[in-house]
Amino acid sequence: MKSLEDLKKLRDEALKKMNVRYIKGGYRFQVGMGTCGIASGAREVLQGFLRELSARNITNVSVTQVGCMGECAYEPMAEIIDENGQSFVYCTINETMIKEIIESHLISHQPISKYLLTSRKG
């Protein structure tokens, strides 16, 4: 370590790993992990979100598991709560949707209405 810049670089790198302990605010991804959710693949969805987020180096997002969300027929479901506290519930999520949701909703702030529970239930 020779300079302050080296130290700062190391700090920012290290902070990424610990972010989950300190992020307040930002986007929250809550994946329904009830028995129904797990049976229809919520584990894979949860891991998929984590994989995509870390591949894109996005850190201001917390991904958590929550209990059954009540609409078992539409599992796996995930609720996305944005910085303003507005919530969007995505349902019957699969691998390709994960990428789309992150790209469109998280990065370009465009919720994908066709995947939302409200529109699917009609």
């Binding site: 302050l4 130290l7 700062k8 190391l10 700090r11 790198e13 290290a14 902070l15 790993k17 610990m18 302990r21």
Partner: peptide, 25 residues
């Protein structure tokens, strides 16, 4: 109770050794 004491990176993440750098530089 906030960081892993066995990992210097976690201390550095919490601005560790920043004061030392500032003082001697």
């Amino acid at each position: 109770g906030n960081i892993n004491p066995l990992d210097i990176n976690e201390y550095i993440a919490k601005d560790g050794y920043m004061a030392l750098a500032k003082v001697i530089k």
